[in-house]
C-alpha cells in the first residue's frame, strides 16, 4: 500500500521535474522561463473556482510571460491536487488555487504528510460570503424568524448544506456554537442539490455563496436571510449580515493561490506582482464583472494574514466539535 503511495509521489515529482528541466533559456524580464504555469484546482471543471481561475489564465500571460493553464484535479476529494502541487518542483510553475476546504480543513482532519506552514499564499482572488437562503413562501424570512422558530421547536428546522465540514457547513456549526440553537443538518451533493431541495419544499433552509443566488434573490424567487461576514455582500446589498442581527459570526471563504513554502520569495513576489497587475487590467475587470466573480485581489502579505486567521478559526471550531484533539 505504501509502495503505491510512493510510486504516485515519484510519478508526480518526476513528471514535473522532467518537464521543467528542459526549459529552453529564460525569458528576459521573467524569472519563470517559458514553460507554462499550471493553476491546479482541487475541484471539477465548471465551478466557481474554475471560472475565477480562468479569468486569471486568460489575462495574466501578457504580464507574467509564460502561458497559464487551469488544471482540474478533483481526485481523492481534492487531496490529489494538493499533493500534486506539493510534490512539484518548487519553482513557481505549479500553483494551487483553492478555498480553505482542501488545505485548511483537510490539513487538520485528514492523514496528510504536510502541515499548514508548508504553504505560502501568493495572492487572494476574492472572499465568498456564505449566505443562508430559503424560498419566498416559507414562514422563516429573516434571521429573527429563524432564531424564534429554532427556540420554540428546537431540532426541527431542516438545513441543507453541501459536504460535511465544507465551506457552507462550518458557518452553521459556528452559529450553533455561538447561540446554542439546534437544526437538522442535511448534507447534499452540492449547491445544485441544496437549491432544488429548498425550491421544491423538501427542506427549510440552505446555505450557498452569493453569486449563485444573486439574480434569483433580485427577482424575488429566493429570499436571502443573512450573510456570515463582517460587511454585506456586494452581490446581495439588501441582505443583512449576522453581525447586524447581533450574532458575531463571520466565516468568509476565500479563494487563494498557494505555492509551497520552499518556492523562492523572489519568484512568489514576481508572481504576486504580475497576477495583481493582470487582474487590475481593464480586460480582467470586464471579465470578472461578466462572470460575476467579484474579484478583489489581496497581495501575498495580506493573504498570509487571512490564511493564518482562518487556520486558527477552523482549528478552534474543529476542536470544539471533537473532530480533532
Amino acid at each position: 500500500m505504501s509502495r503505491l503511495k510512493a510510486t504516485l509521489k515519484a510519478t508526480a515529482a518526476t513528471t514535473l521535474a522532467a518537464s521543467l528541466a528542459f526549459a529552453p533559456g529564460l525569458a528576459a524580464a521573467s524569472p519563470l522561463g517559458s514553460d507554462p504555469i499550471r493553476l491546479v484546482i482541487p475541484f471539477g471543471p465548471g465551478g466557481g473556482s474554475d471560472i475565477t481561475a480562468r479569468v486569471l489564465s486568460a489575462t495574466a500571460p501578457e504580464f507574467c510571460g509564460p502561458r497559464i493553464d487551469v488544471v482540474s484535479m478533483s481526485g481523492a476529494a481534492g487531496l490529489e491536487a494538493v499533493n500534486f502541487v506539493r510534490n512539484a518542483e518548487p519553482n513557481g510553475h505549479t500553483l494551487l488555487v483553492t478555498d480553505y476546504g482542501p488545505i485548511v480543513t483537510s490539513g487538520f482532519v485528514d492523514d496528510v504528510d504536510w502541515s499548514h506552514d508548508d504553504w505560502q499564499p501568493v495572492m487572494n482572488f476574492t472572499e465568498w460570503l456564505p449566505t443562508v437562503y430559503t424560498r419566498p413562501d416559507h414562514d422563516i424570512q429573516t434571521i429573527e424568524d429563524w432564531m424564534e422558530a429554532a427556540e420554540s421547536e428546537p431540532g426541527t428546522i431542516t438545513f441543507g448544506h453541501a459536504s460535511p465540514l465544507g465551506i457552507v457547513h462550518l458557518p452553521l456549526i459556528l452559529l450553533e456554537m455561538e447561540t446554542g440553537m439546534e437544526n437538522v443538518h442535511v448534507p447534499t451533493s452540492g449547491g445544485g442539490e441544496t437549491r432544488s431541495m429548498v425550491m421544491g419544499g423538501h427542506i427549510d433552509l440552505g446555505m450557498t455563496l452569493p453569486a449563485s443566488i444573486a439574480s434569483e434573490v433580485a427577482a424575488g424567487e429566493l429570499t436571502a436571510l443573512g450573510v456570515f461576514a463582517d460587511e454585506r455582500s456586494p452581490a446581495l446589498p439588501d441582505t443583512p449580515t449576522f453581525k447586524e442581527s447581533g450574532y458575531d459570526v463571520a466565516l468568509p471563504a476565500w479563494l487563494m493561490i498557494f505555492a509551497t513554502s520552499d518556492v523562492p520569495s523572489e519568484t512568489v513576489e514576481f508572481l504576486q506582482d504580475c497576477f495583481m497587475e493582470a487582474l487590475a487590467s481593464p480586460t480582467a475587470v470586464a471579465m470578472s464583472d461578466r462572470v460575476n466573480a467579484g474579484i478583489e485581489p489581496l497581495n501575498a502579505e495580506d493573504s498570509a494574514r487571512l490564511y493564518q486567521n482562518t487556520v486558527d478559526t477552523i482549528g478552534s471550531i474543529l476542536r470544539e466539535i471533537g473532530e480533532i484533539d
Partner: peptide, 9 residues
Amino acid sequence: INIPLPRAL
C-alpha cells in the same frame, strides 16, 4: 488536451 504529464525527452 495538454494533460499534466512530462512531454518528452
